[in-house]
Computed example of a mutant assay.
Amino acid sequence: MAFEVRVGCFGVDILQGRTGVAYDWWSTTCMDICQAASKNYAYSWIACPQDEANHIRQCLCTDDQPSSRWLESDSACPYPYVVVDYLGPPAEWEWYYCFDFLSQGPANPFPVSSLPQCLSACAAYPNAYFLWEDREDHYTCACYQRGPPFTDYDCGVGKAMHYYHTPSPTDSAAVRRKQRAAEEAQKEMSRDFEICPAGFRACRVPEENQISYECIDTSSELESCGGCLFGEINASSQVVNTPSEVQGEGCTSLPGVLEHGVACHAGRCIAFACSDGYTLLEDTCVPVGNTGD
C-alpha cells in the first residue's frame, strides 16, 4: 500500500478536462494505482452520485502539483470535489486537518515552493504547517515542536494544513548546521522587530535549543495560562523569565478537571466539569468531602 499525505480538497476544474480511470475503492486505492505508475500525486473523485453507491471512484495519476486556484475549504471533500494526495512524503508524515495561524499570531513561517519542500525542511520537528497564502500559488511553511492548540476542520486558503510525525534521532552535521542557521536568522530578525504582536508573549519551547519559542496569548492558552511555563524570550533571544519566576499553569493538568472541562480566561484557569471524586467549588475541582461545608 502506498504511503501518502493529504494535499487538499479541490474543485473539479483542477482536472482541466482530464479524465481518470475507474476503480472500486473497496479493493484498491488511487494511491496504490499511482504508486504503481510512479507518479507523485493521486487525484481521486466521485464522477456521479450513483458511483458512490457502487463504491466507484475515478483516479488520475500525475506529477502536476495542484494549484491553490481551485482549493476548497471542506476537509471532508464530498462529491463532486477532488481529493489530492502526495505519494511518498519524507519521514512518514501524516495529515491532521488545519490550523488558523492568522488568528493566533505569527509562526515564523518561511516561503516554500511545494508541500514536499516544507515537509523535508521540518524533518527534525514533530509538527509542520503548510499554509496556502492566496490563490496565486504562494506557500509558506512553519516547523514546530508543539501541535496546534485547536484543530480547524474548515481548511482552505489562509489556513495551515497540519502535518505530524515522529522525528528520527540524528547527529547529522547538516541538521545541526541548519538549526544553527535558523537560530542566527531568528536572532537577526529579533534585533529589528518585536518577537510577538501585542497581546502575545514569546514563550520558550522546552527543548535543547534554548531560544526556540512560540507566540502565545497567556490570557487564554490552556497549557500556559497566566504565564510562560518554561520561561519567556525577549527581543535579544535571551530568557528573561525562568520557569520559577512565572505564575502560569497548565489548566488540563490540574487535579480533578476533565480533559474538556476547563478553560483559561483572563490568565486564570476556570474549571466547569470535574472527574469522579471531585466537585466544583468556585471554578476549581476539589476532592469530595473537602469543600469546607
Rank of each mutant, 00 (worst) to 15 (best):
M1W: 13
Q238Y: 05
A202N: 10
V246L: 12
A181S: 11
R268D: 03
A181W: 10
V82M: 04
C225F: 01
G289C: 04
A47W: 08
C269H: 12
H162N: 01
N290A: 12
W70S: 04
D276T: 15
F130N: 01
D152W: 04
E259C: 02
A173C: 06
E282W: 12
S220E: 13
E188G: 08
W25H: 15
Y43D: 06
A185P: 01
A181C: 05
P243W: 00
Y86A: 08
L131G: 00
S27L: 09
P169H: 06
D13L: 10
D171E: 11
P109A: 10
R18S: 06
D171L: 04
C264Q: 06
N40L: 11
P197L: 10
S113A: 11
Y153R: 00
V240C: 00
F130D: 01
Q58D: 09
E221R: 12
C118P: 04
V239S: 01
Y163N: 00
R146N: 10
D276V: 10
W95V: 03
P149I: 12
I33Y: 06
C215I: 15
S172L: 07
I270R: 14
D152P: 02
C34V: 07
R268I: 13
D24A: 00
G292Y: 12
N40E: 14
H55K: 13
N290I: 07
S237R: 08
P90C: 14
W26G: 05
P80N: 05
L281W: 04
P106G: 01
Q186V: 13
P197Q: 06
V112A: 02
A263T: 15
S224K: 02
C196N: 09
G231Q: 04
W25M: 09
F101M: 13
R18Y: 03
V240M: 01
P197G: 12
F272R: 08
P106L: 03
Q104A: 15
N234K: 08
Q16R: 12
D283I: 02
A37I: 03
H138N: 14
A91W: 09
N54A: 12
Q247E: 12
S172H: 02
V112I: 06
T140F: 00
V112Q: 08
P169E: 13
T252P: 03
C228W: 13
Y129R: 08
F200L: 10
S73L: 07
C251Q: 09
T140D: 15
D283C: 02
C251Y: 10
N234H: 05
E259L: 14
S75G: 11
V157R: 09
V83G: 01
V205D: 03
C274H: 11
E249R: 15
A160T: 13
E52R: 09
G261D: 15
C122K: 00
F110Y: 14
E207A: 04
C264W: 13
C9R: 02
P106S: 06
R146P: 07
F230L: 03
Y139F: 14
